[in-house]
């Protein structure tokens, strides 16, 4: 590390700090992962594939609460970023942990949903709808867990007084995870026809 700080903050051949550019690159690749799955889901649904009527068995209430939780977590992580820009480390630390808390609530609700569905026999091999449901929501939940772990690590860094730029980077990632859920919610919970 040079005297000017980490490369992620000061090197900017494109006019954008390398760390932020790298984060956007990562998200561009994530568009293919989730976008590809969403595209396949839509194609099979439009084709009238048997099993997709099971969308009526998902809980709109649970999905809506989870959407509320993730939207609120997006607010808390952007407030963490705003706080660290003003140099308020403690406030930023606090908002990051609120976000981790919201992530945990999301996962608890998702686990409750999974348990209910599995008890009623709707497992990943039940039909194509449930295969998509568990693959896409499971992959999304893994992203939530990954984001929570990284946020926890970053929170301790900023408390010690370094790597402030990472709050913005994990924030961008977390908002993307929120964006994916914004599309999964109507796909699996609302469009039941």
């Amino acid at each position: 590390m040079s005297m000017r700080g980490p490369i992620a903050t000061h090197r900017s051949a494109t006019g954008i700090p390398t760390g932020r550019l790298g984060t956007w690159w990562l998200l561009a690749s994530e568009i293919f992962i989730f976008g590809g799955l969403i595209a396949c889901f839509i194609l099979f649904k439009l084709n009238g594939t048997p099993g997709f009527e099971d969308a009526s068995l998902t809980s709109v209430t649970a999905g809506a609460i989870n959407t509320f939780v993730l939207l609120t977590s997006s607010l808390s992580v952007v407030l963490a970023h705003a706080a660290i820009e003003k140099g308020d480390r403690e406030k930023s630390f606090k908002y990051i942990w609120y976000t981790i808390g919201f992530g945990l609530v999301f996962l608890i609700i998702k686990t409750y949903e999974y348990t209910g569905k599995i008890i009623h026999g709707h497992t990943i091999t039940d039909n194509l709808f449930w295969s998509f449901y568990y693959t896409m929501t499971g992959l999304h939940a893994l992203h939530v867990i990954g984001g929570m772990v990284i946020m926890a690590l970053i929170s301790f860094d900023i408390r010690k007084g370094y790597n402030f730029q990472r709050v913005e980077l994990i924030g961008i990632y977390w908002h993307f995870v929120d964006l994916v859920w914004i599309f999964l919610f109507p796909l699996f919970y609302i469009a039941n026809f």
Binding site: T14, I16, W24, W25, F32, G35, G36
Partner: peptide
């Protein structure tokens, strides 16, 4: 953000369209 980020995302969405 700068235009390069917009281009990056639009390119990703266009390639997704090709896949679709």
């Amino acid at each position: 953000e700068k235009k390069i980020i917009w281009l990056l995302l639009i390119l990703a969405l266009c390639l997704l369209g090709v896949f679709f």
